[in-house]
Design a protein around this nucleic acid. Structure first.
Lengths: 226, 226
DNA sequence: CCAAGGATAATTGTATACAGTCCGGCTTTT
DNA sequence: AAAAGCCGGACTGTATACAATTATCCTTGG
């Protein structure tokens, strides 16, 4: 699953991001390029690249000539992201219903058929990937580069939410039914219905995580006050 | 006005971004690190940093081991961004109305008073800055880090739109009145009214640019088909 | 003549060297 | 003794050197 052949900077980026979200660092902790490079057996160059990227994602703050400090991501942030996604993804669904091409519709259909198959076989493991793919194609179908860009940017955080959600008993079946409903709306070119279907889907998703507690998503981060 | 003392990477980033938006490069053009570094009299290091940043902003595409290619920004993209902003900034206004603290309200008030003053004096030049500041504070008042982050990210593109809009006769007065209305809604803690006011404001803004033609915003980029 | 393959040049990826900046502690002066 | 200034260490910022990868073009065999 883990793409092994990315460039170093990307790898370092993913590792640090994972560590921050997992709560390995405490807030305001300084990330020294040499220390991280030492630990990961790479030079400062890829580390710097990763830190700059993390700044753009809002996970660290860089003070010129001083260093990079962990900003982290709180439970409140996760809720903020969810609020954002609710808005953006429903807009995207609306546009997808209006503009998706036949190829994209076909791709969505295939994912759903696979999902339903894996549910029958009770192979929940496969579903998280299919779930992600379904939403990704929806992003592209929206045909708004900037929208797609933002959604994909924050997609990562939501992976955890999705995975957590799909662990709730009965949730995979429901989730797939909701996907089916979204696809139907897209096929019917019914923008309003698509938007509603996506919104409902997301709300259900988050509800299911909520019952599990945000700690499962935020990776044990202590605070959530902001 | 131009902050002279930023780090090299940031400077290079701003220069390339400006060049891309101004249409200096054609689409798919390859950006070679050495060539750019030569032209700007810097080494490859800051150039690479800038290119990576531009990729995150979606203005260039980087293919590993191959290079960076200009993606650019079309009239359609500008409309896409506007659509996004309409959605995000109205959400932000809603939240600002609910959560803005007294300090932020005060700051907005001061900006408005200054704006009204400069309008009387017919110093339109000052207004663009105040306009930007007004919206920025609104972003912060929304109290959603991620939302703020996205809005500020795309703020740059909108600066051009704002400036263009404020050149339309009568527009500065109307714009300031609309700002006033937004502030009133925030003061009254009326989220719905705030949202509507912001939405109206943005629509008016774009309407005024539309009559001038998108070319003024996209900097003479030829295509808009996507 | 065309296609396949390999040497070579060009470009990116990574490491390292060097320069500039900031911070803390020590000294010195009042 | 307190404050100002200087010095050294640690770290970031930038440039450059080196490695790896890719593209180009020439050669060569069919």
């Amino acid at each position: 699953m883990s793409e092994a052949n990315y460039l170093l900077g990307q790898k370092v980026f993913q590792i640090i991001r994972e560590d921050i979200i997992a709560g390995k660092y405490h807030r305001q902790e300084e990330l020294r390029e040499i220390a991280i490079g030492d630990e990961l057996q790479v030079s400062r160059t890829p580390v710097r690249e990763a830190l700059r990227q993390l700044e753009l994602e809002g996970l660290v703050a860089i003070v010129p000539n001083r260093g990079a400090y962990v900003v982290g991501i709180s439970g409140q942030d996760m809720k903020d992201i969810f609020e954002l996604r609710l808005l953006l993804e429903s807009l995207c669904a609306r546009k997808a219903a209006e503009q998706a091409d036949s190829e994209q519709v076909e791709a969505l259909e295939e994912i759903l058929i696979l999902s339903e198959y894996h549910i029958k076989k009770e192979r929940v493991r496969q579903l998280t990937g299919l779930d992600s793919k379904f939403h990704e194609i929806l992003y592209e179908a929206g045909n708004n580069r900037m929208l797609e860009h933002v959604l994909k940017n924050y997609h990562y955080y939501l992976k955890r939410a999705r995975r957590a959600s799909l662990l709730v008993p009965g949730r995979p079946e429901a989730s797939t039914r909701e996907h089916r409903k979204i696809l139907e709306a897209v096929k019917e070119r019914d923008a309003g219905k698509a938007e509603d279907a996506v919104r409902q889907h997301l709300i259900y998703t988050i509800k299911n995580i909520d019952s599990y507690g945000w700690e499962n998503i935020t990776g044990g981060q202590k605070n959530g006050k902001n």
